[in-house]
Design a protein around this nucleic acid. Structure first.
Lengths: 195, 195
DNA sequence: CATTAACGTGAACCGTGGTTCATGATGAAT
DNA sequence: ATTCATCATGAACCACGGTTCACGTTAATG
């Protein structure tokens, strides 16, 4: 049994360049981003691109995987920050803000995924994010800041519908509206006890 | 100044059949719905389709126009119902529910519009809907049911992000969460949390 | 340095889907 | 009934974009 050779240096480099370019181009031009354009943006020929990702669907799936992992890490970081004494609501709010931002740049990617019939799910990362979120919500409910009936699915439901193609001001407003629905607080920047 | 002849009977009939088929097919298969499929569904040849709508973009635009008009009419109907003594919050809630439903069947249409670069805006209908909504919100605020800072743009912001491809239960839950953010009320038995 | 397998290249291929156009059919007007 | 403009037909056309492949390059191994 031949032991596999060490991967070539430039191959690794190119793979990264391609992923970066793909993320950027798809974010920019939506699902319409052509393989040629992506290849050009990566400074690589089309063939190279197909060597690393046999099909466009595979490429898009890879980009999504990056994104999902990113979300999972954000959730876990938020949970760990609870140990430092921060309030769960604030962490959730912060998490939603970050993810909304990230999703804004990745909305097009999901659209592309749909258009290609790719499975935009990374079971593992999803599970990690879910666990962290559940902990955050529970903490928030214990604090009395978050409605008792709020679940992890609610969070998913909300930020999968985040307004990604709106200007930042609109996104901020959206977050404010949505948070009011999750928490026991009234609106206004700070956090006054509600009625 | 040639006075235009009376339009042929079958032409009018076909135009309607085409619009119906287009709405149905695009709703069903998304932006991928081909002109051939639409034509087939309408029981018409492709050429006929192109006689009525010079381009696919035009066809999609026409379907969207129908939808926008529909929304405007729903808003105006809701406002008029205020005269019968119904509460503004309830009407807004009802309006959002209806529109969310309708949007669910027309999400694909908007996606198609984006993909084609069509302007999905009907200034007139938009204005009518805006006026009606403003009246509804104001009434709701006068009742003390709706937060003082809520605007028409908020409503737009929310239901342009409505979860259209989720199952009905999820849509209901979403509506419940969002309404809590708009109103001064606590959540009632409106929507149950997911499994 | 020589060897070789992995890698990179880009012109060409091909299916798909929007669009056209020459031809035939049909409803309205005389 | 006859005329004619409007309308319908659908095979063919063409551009676009994902994908392939025969060939040149390059990094790893001895």
């Amino acid at each position: 049994m031949a032991q596999t050779r060490a991967p070539r240096a430039d191959a690794v480099r190119n793979r990264k360049k391609i992923l970066d370019a793909a993320r950027e181009q798809i974010t920019l031009h939506g699902p319409d981003a052509g393989m040629d354009e992506i290849a050009a943006a990566a400074g690589v020929a089309v063939g190279t691109l197909y060597r690393h990702f046999p099909t466009k669907t595979d490429l898009v799936a890879a980009v999504i995987a990056e994104y999902t992992t990113h979300v999972a890490e954000a959730a876990e970081a938020a949970r760990e920050r609870l140990a430092t004494g921060s309030r769960a609501v604030d962490e959730i709010s912060d998490f939603l803000a970050r993810v909304t931002e990230a999703t804004a740049t990745n909305h097009a990617v999901k659209a592309a995924a749909r258009a290609l019939g790719a499975d935009p799910v990374d079971r593992d990362a999803e599970a990690r994010a879910g666990a962290a979120l559940a902990a955050l919500i529970q903490a928030g409910q214990a604090d009395g800041d978050i409605h008792q009936d709020v679940t992890v699915d609610d969070i998913y439901l909300l930020f999968t519908t985040a307004p990604t193609d709106q200007p930042p001001a609109a996104r901020a407003r959206w977050l404010s509206l949505v948070l009011t629905g999750l928490t026991t607080h009234t609106r206004t920047g700070g956090g006054e006890a509600g009625s």
